[in-house]
């Protein structure tokens, strides 16, 4: 039953996290700190590095519904269907490439703060997300990320796509630390059920990311996928 707030099946116990890509280019091989230095006075340069990260969020999301319905009005942000509150946390590695692309490997867990009655299952863990997207550097050590994610929940045999995630923040002078917050975007979660059915849920979140550089040479790979953006 789609609109039952408690115990409505897969999606009520889903969590969400993730990240994805599209490219641009600057062929020079900059370190993060060199890129930051260069971004002050000229066209921003990009870099190649791996960052370990942690993230946490709070979201209000519409309960899962058929794609023909709208859960949150994209213009007014008014809930048009009942919603629920979730809090999620996770982490992983963000791979930054010198052509401006970005990939993310992440794991996450979720607590559904609306599931507070006996018999409920408020926690979902073991979410595995892969994301692709892009990043930019601009003056004032500002960083912007954009990505879309695919998330699997092996224990439940379900998966979902999430996007867009747009985040903005700062990179330290030495390139070691990056802090970001998600921007005010409406996100869409598209849930794929084991029986082939698709459900949709929209959400609004506040989310923060904290990154620490763990390698100056990205170990990640980027392969063209159907969810890539051009």
């Amino acid at each position: 039953m789609f609109f039952k707030r408690n115990g409505y099946g897969y999606f009520g116990r889903l969590a969400i996290t993730a990240f994805a890509v599209a490219g641009m280019a600057s062929a020079q091989d900059f370190t993060a700190s060199e890129a930051v230095q260069a971004s002050r006075h000229s066209k921003p340069k990009l870099f190649q590095a791996d960052y370990g990260f942690r993230t946490s969020n709070n979201c209000v999301r519409a309960i899962p519904h058929p794609p023909s319905l709208v859960g949150i009005d994209p213009d007014t942000r008014t809930l048009l269907l009942p919603g629920e509150v979730v809090s999620q946390g996770g982490g992983g590695v963000m791979h930054f490439f010198k052509d401006g692309r970005l990939t993310v490997d992440a794991t996450a867990s979720e607590v559904n703060l609306s599931q507070v009655v006996p018999g409920a299952f408020p926690q979902t863990d073991g979410l595995v997300g892969t994301c692709r997207g892009s990043y930019t550097l601009s003056s004032g050590n500002r960083v912007a990320l954009h990505f879309n994610c695919h998330v699997d929940i092996p224990s439940q045999g379900v998966s979902f796509d999430l996007g867009p995630t747009n985040a903005e923040g700062f990179i330290s002078e030495n390139g070691v630390a990056v802090n970001l917050n998600q921007t005010d975007d409406l996100q869409t979660v598209t849930l794929k059920l084991p029986n082939g059915a698709t459900l949709v849920s929209e959400r609004v979140c506040v989310q923060s990311f904290a990154l620490t550089r763990i390698s100056s040479n990205s170990k990640g790979t980027y392969s063209k996928a159907s969810t890539d953006e051009d």
């Binding site: 007014t76 942000r77 809930l79 919603g83 509150v85 703060l113």
Partner: peptide, 13 residues
């Protein structure tokens, strides 16, 4: 984000 604003018609953000 108003985490209590989860009824239809609410604007939580």
């Amino acid at each position: 984000l108003d985490l209590n604003g989860i009824d239809a018609g609410d604007v939580p953000n």
